[in-house]
């Protein structure tokens, strides 16, 4: 049966937004659209704040603390008071382009989330309206899916996942650094402040999201057809599956919290918020 002859026997494609659904079907894509848009706008703004090397609001060192915004970690580049490993900026960076240390960092988590299976399904609905929600008419007649360029590039997801796992280790180190405070004697003292908790929760949520990745689930054991032959892979698969079951929840919580972490450190660095210290040894 030829394509057209079978398609011609089917009901005509519904018009955009056409549905007999009686629930508030537009609410979910609207919330996703607003949530993702707010994060994209804020994170872009936060990245661009790093173009001014006279300020360093992505790092808070007041009261002996050492909090680095996750948008700027690791500190590959940076100026006083938080210099980067490779200096202020790369020598080859074109002078006419603004430079922020965040440019070298944020493309990795952004790429990881952009190609994430949860985010794909969510933004195809909320931004591309393809479909805007289940059983609701969509605006376009043609459809290529992820079979052809550009969306076939989503298959690069596992490579972003490898980089994202490295970031979890780096952010874990940042959370650890956030537990050490410089004292009046010049030494480092173990302590706990609100900022320390913010950084710890940040790495826990990002870890829960990253380690529940569908690609990781496949790579640690999902590729097997017989788990009994490899118990280690089966255990890893089951562990990732535990996190993967709530992947959407981890995705949202980690997205909100990583943004909040930057806000917290920025406001502390600007002197607007005071970082409350619980104790120091």
């Amino acid at each position: 049966m030829a394509t057209m002859s079978y398609a011609s026997t089917l009901p005509k494609q519904a018009k955009f937004g056409e549905t007999t659904r009686s629930d508030v079907w537009w609410m979910q894509p609207l919330v996703v659209f607003l949530g993702f848009s707010a994060f994209i706008v804020y994170s872009t703004w936060a990245a661009l704040q790093g173009t001014d090397i006279s300020t360093c609001y992505y790092w808070f060192g007041g009261n002996g603390a050492n909090y680095l915004s996750p948008f700027y970690s690791p500190a590959l580049f940076g100026s006083t008071p938080h210099p980067g490993i490779f200096g202020v900026m790369p020598a080859w960076w074109p002078a006419f382009l603004p430079f922020s240390p965040a440019f070298f960092i944020m493309w990795i988590p952004a790429g990881f989330r952009f190609t994430c299976y949860y985010y794909r399904g969510a933004y195809y609905k909320a931004f591309w309206l393809d479909p805007v929600n289940c059983a609701v008419g969509e605006p376009r007649k043609s459809y290529l899916g992820e079979r052809y360029l550009p969306l076939i590039l989503q298959n690069v997801h596992r490579y972003f996942m490898y980089l994202a796992v490295v970031f979890i280790l780096i952010l874990g180190r940042d959370a650890w650094d956030g537990l050490w405070f410089k004292g009046a004697d010049g030494g480092e003292h173990f302590g706990l402040a609100v900022g320390s908790l913010v950084l710890i929760v940040n790495v826990v949520l990002l870890g829960g999201y990253t380690l529940g990745c569908h690609s990781l689930r496949h790579l640690v054991g999902g590729f097997l057809d017989s788990f009994s032959k490899n118990k280690a892979c089966a255990s890893c698969f089951n562990a990732v599956t535990c996190l993967n079951k709530k992947h959407m929840l981890w995705a949202w919580m980690s997205l909100i919290w990583v943004g909040f972490t930057d806000v917290y450190i920025r406001l502390c660095a600007m002197g607007i918020w005071h970082d409350f210290r619980f104790f120091t040894f």
Binding site: G121, Y124, K125, P131, G145, R147, I152
Partner: peptide
């Protein structure tokens, strides 16, 4: 079988 057409809407 065109698995690439699936865009993971979870419907």
């Amino acid at each position: 079988h065109g698995i690439g057409y699936c865009n993971i809407t979870k419907c």
